[in-house]
Design a binder for these strands. Structure first.
Length: 488
RNA sequence: UCCUCCUUAGCUCAGUUGGUUAGAGCAUCUGACUGUUAAUCAGAGGGUCGUUGGUUCAAGUCCAACAGGGGGAGCCA
């Protein structure tokens, strides 16, 4: 495997390509390991090791090499190269690696390797999700996803929040947040039955029916009533038959819960939080963001002028940072929509007529993308269209809910101040036929030292969508789970 | 789940009013070149036109069902 006799090079430290490209240093020996992106002119290897979207140009001299080894330098192959970093003799890069020793770590049959140096569709990439990390686009997306996740923890840590791990498997199916996935070890062919002929979950692993969590909020509230401020950040499961570019059956959600917070504090925190993580990404993922911005720009060129977005990706992120989110109540939103041009001209599929109905996607989009042209926080929704745990307003009609709506994404945050009054909460649960006895542990927070508190849930993938400028949520989670699809 | 569109080579796509042997670019292979930047040049191989059934003298092209995928809607984060 050795190219020549300079054995001392073998001992060189492996260095990540990002580090080499960041530095102006030259004339030193390194070992790099990565995957061949392209091999040009039988001479130039574009090597990528995942540390950055940029490739290191590795220069090989065919004459110096064993022909059998040379032929194994193919697109996709894993290689280790030792040599000297020198100022590049060609244009297009500052430095390059002059090969002394090259080793094939893993061959790649280029004939069947599906990733090619040309434009390939995102739909096709989803079918090869196990390999798509090796492309520029997905490399950028998932490095940004990592940064955002890190920034989430850093933000809450700086604020003194406790990261609370709420359970993945839950026994309550009373949260009303959607269809749940059943968790069981019972024999599906012949499950044990009780006297009534129903499946006897007493025989099941936990001695009761259990499901995958749809939200950590209720448990989160228990933590908030001890630590003051907590957050969760974990997987969440919804068995809804949702087939959209914004829904997943398995997704990651961030749910802070704060004691002694009222609705306004809740909104302030959510806005500060979103801006913090976006700023973090702008500061730490500039190369990847620039790549995605360029990609988006190229894509926009295919579209007719009218459909093109007025802002580039970076501009859009900076715009969000530099402007306050618009805060209006549901009632104000209805007024705006009622008097809006599309409503008067009957352009809405669902005309806005009366107070009390839920807003449709087209209405939310109008408010965010046309009327205000910035993120909007909608508050004080009718109680009838919101969850049982939200704090009831004095008007007897509305609750202290808040949803944050983002352009192109829709609802990115849903939250509320919680009803801390035991009697009001129980009354509301009874009205909605939520089993009060089953949730005794939740109600105990209202019996023992209850306090005003609030919180929200932020869909992590929707945040990643916004920051990366991608448009399908399946492209911002490594292995998407959607109805009829759980490959890899 | 509903509406709508799509499915042709490994990938990205052409394929006319149904009519001989289904095309291109890239990728792959062979050769050339050797400071290239999605390298270039020459040549070669590569297709059950998503599946099944139907209409027709004749179907990639028309019809139906099914499968997979895209976009939109609902549910929501």
């Amino acid at each position: 495997m050795l190219l020549n006799k300079k054995l001392s090079f073998i001992m060189s430290q492996r260095v990540k390509i990002k580090q080499i490209l960041l530095s102006d240093r030259t004339n030193y020996e390194v070992t790099v390991k990565g995957w061949v992106r392209t091999f040009r002119n039988n001479q130039f290897i574009a090597l990528n090791d995942g540390s950055t979207n940029n490739n290191l140009q590795v220069v090989v001299n065919e004459a110096d090499m064993d022909p059998a080894l040379f032929r194994r330098i193919t697109r996709g192959a894993a290689i280790a190269v030792t040599g000297e970093i020198i100022p590049s003799l060609g244009k297009g890069q500052k430095v390059e690696l002059k090969t002394a020793v090259l080793e094939i770590l893993g061959d790649c049959d280029a004939e069947v390797y599906p990733i090619q140096p040309q434009k390939q569709s995102l739909e096709f990439m989803r079918e090869i999700a196990h390999l798509r990390f090796r492309t520029n686009t997905f490399g950028a997306v998932f490095r940004i996803r990592h940064s955002l996740a890190f920034a989430v923890h850093q933000f809450f840590n700086e604020k003194g929040f406790v990261y609370l791990h709420t359970p993945i498997i839950t026994a309550s199916d009373a949260e009303g947040a959607g269809e749940m996935f059943r968790v069981t070890t019972l024999d599906m062919k012949k499950p044990p039955l009780n006297e009534k002929g129903e499946i006897d979950y007493k025989e099941d692993f936990f001695g009761r029916a259990t499901n995958l969590t749809v939200s950590g909020q209720l448990e989160g509230e228990l933590g908030a009533m001890a630590f003051g401020d907590i957050y969760t950040f974990g997987p969440t499961f919804r068995a809804e038959n949702s087939n959209t570019a914004r829904h997943l059956a398995e997704f990651w959600m961030i749910e802070p819960e704060m004691a002694f917070y009222e609705l306004k504090d809740n909104m302030d925190l959510a806005e500060e939080f979103i801006k913090y993580v976006i700023r973090y990404s702008l500061e730490h993922n500039r190369e990847d963001l620039d790549f995605l911005a360029q990609r988006l720009l190229d894509e926009e060129k295919q579209k007719p002028q009218a459909d093109r977005s007025p802002m580039g990706l970076i501009e859009k992120l900076e715009f969000v940072l530099n402007n306050e989110f618009m805060r209006i109540t549901y009632t104000e939103a209805i007024d705006i929509l009622k008097n809006s041009k599309p409503n008067k001209n009957k352009k809405f599929q669902f005309p806005v007529e009366e107070w009390g109905t839920d807003l449709q996607s087209e209405h939310e989009r109008y408010l965010v993308e046309k009327h205000f042209q910035k993120p909007v926080i909608l508050t004080d929704y009718p109680a009838a269209i919101k969850s049982f745990y939200m704090k009831q307003n004095e008007d007897g009609k509305t609750v202290r809910a808040m949803d944050i709506l983002f352009p192109g994404i829709g609802e990115i945050v849903g939250g509320s101040q919680r009803e801390e009054n035991y009697d009001k909460l129980v009354k509301r649960m009874e009205e909605l036929q939520i089993p009060v006895e089953e949730l005794y542990w939740y109600l105990d927070t209202r019996r023992f030292g209850t306090a005003p508190h609030a919180g929200f849930g932020l869909g992590f993938e929707r945040l990643v969508l916004f920051v990366t400028g991608m448009t399908n949520i399946r492209d911002v989670i490594p292995f998407p789970r959607t109805p009829k699809s759980a490959e890899f």
